[in-house]
Amino acid sequence: MKINIVITMVLFLFSFFINGQTRSVNGKVISEDLEPLAGVQIRNSDNELLGETDFDGQFKIIISGKNDTLCLDFIGMEFTEIKLKEDCNNVEIIMMYYVIYDFISSKKIDRLRKKRYKKLNEKHLFATDKGIFQYKHSCYIRNFKQLQLD
C-alpha cells in the first residue's frame, strides 16, 4: 500500500516537471471609454480558452511557463494580442473598438487605427489617475497590426 502511494507521488511530481512551470496572471480589461468589459475571452497562442473577465472586467488565469502570449476577443472590439514579459503577473489592458470605415482605402483605415492605437498609452495613464488601473506602465508588449482586408 505504501509503495503505491510513493509511486503515485513520484509520478505526480514527475508529470509536473515534464509539463513545465505554471504561473498565475490576473488583470483587468477595459474599453477605450475606460468602461470595464465583462465576458472578454482570454486565450493562449494555441487558441485554448484560459478564462473570461467577470462583470468588473477582472480576470485570473493560470498559464504555462512556455506560453507567454495572450489573445483577447470580445464582440465589438478589435482582436488584441499581447506578449507577457517574464515577470508580468498583473496586466491591465485597454481594448480598441472595432470600427467600420466605409468607402476608405485600407491604408487610410490603418492610419486612423494607428492614431487611436497611439493614444492607448495616454488612456492607460488617465485610467491610473482615475483609480481604474493600479500601474502606470504595462508589463507586456503590444504591437500594432494592420488590417487584413480581403
Rank of each mutant, 00 (worst) to 15 (best):
G57N: 06
C88H: 01
S31D: 09
P36K: 06
F55G: 06
K118V: 05
I82P: 02
S106D: 09
K108R: 13
D33K: 12
K60T: 07
K83A: 09
K118F: 12
E92L: 09
R23H: 10
D87E: 13
L49A: 10
I62A: 09
N67S: 15
R111A: 13
I61F: 12
Y101P: 01
N67G: 11
K28H: 07
I100R: 10
M96G: 08
E52H: 08
S105D: 13
L84D: 05
F55P: 02
K108G: 00
N90V: 15
K115T: 11
N47A: 13
I42H: 03
Y97P: 11
N89Q: 08
I61D: 01
M77V: 01
R43T: 10
C88Y: 01
L72V: 08
E35Y: 08
F74I: 09
S64E: 13
K118R: 14
N67T: 15
L84E: 04
R111I: 04
T69D: 02
K28A: 06
E86V: 09
R23D: 04
Y97C: 06
K115H: 04
C88R: 01
K66P: 00
L34Y: 11
K107E: 14
P36E: 08
I94D: 03
Y97H: 15
I63H: 05
M96L: 14
N26Y: 15
S105E: 09
I61C: 03
V40C: 13
E86K: 15
E78A: 06
E81A: 14
R23G: 03
I94R: 01
F79M: 15
E81I: 09
S24W: 00
M77T: 03
R23M: 12
